[in-house]
Each structure stands twice: as C-alpha cells, then as structure tokens.
C-alpha cells in the first residue's frame, strides 16, 4: 500500500519543468506559514525549539 498520497506520487509522472513549476507554486504558498515554522528542520540543532530556552 502506498504510504504517501496520490498528489505526492504523481510527481513521478512530471518532467523536470513540470516539477519545477509545481515546486515553485507550492513554495509560494508555503511562505504563509513561515512564522510558525520551527527554527530548525535539519542538522544537529533541531531540538532547539526556542531561543529563549538557551538565553
């Protein structure tokens, strides 16, 4: 059973240009949640949730 949605999996049918356009549109929309994003999503500091905690 696929573990991701059909929206995700249709990426495989896209050529490079279509993928770039899909990502670009998604990235525009995703800017709306910037303020709510965690400070780190990669690397070794992802458990550092808030600057206050370490100041």
């Amino acid at each position: 059973m696929p573990l991701l949605s059909e929206d995700d999996l249709t990426l495989r049918e896209m050529d490079d240009e279509e993928l770039a356009r899909a990502w670009d549109l998604w990235f525009d929309l995703a800017q709306e949640t910037n303020d709510a994003d965690p400070p780190y999503t990669h690397g070794v500091l992802v458990l550092v949730k808030s600057p206050r905690r370490i100041e």
Binding site: D8, L11, A22, W23, T41, H42
Partner: peptide
C-alpha cells in the same frame, strides 16, 4: 534531505535546502 526527496520525485515536503 527534503529537496533530495523532491529530486527523486517522492514528495514536495521541505521549505529548506540541506
């Protein structure tokens, strides 16, 4: 990470580059 997952056409899932 996330952008490599995009590159491999699995999912659009990360706003960051890594």
């Amino acid at each position: 990470s996330g952008q490599a997952v995009v590159y491999h056409r699995i999912a659009i899932m990360s706003k960051d580059g890594d």
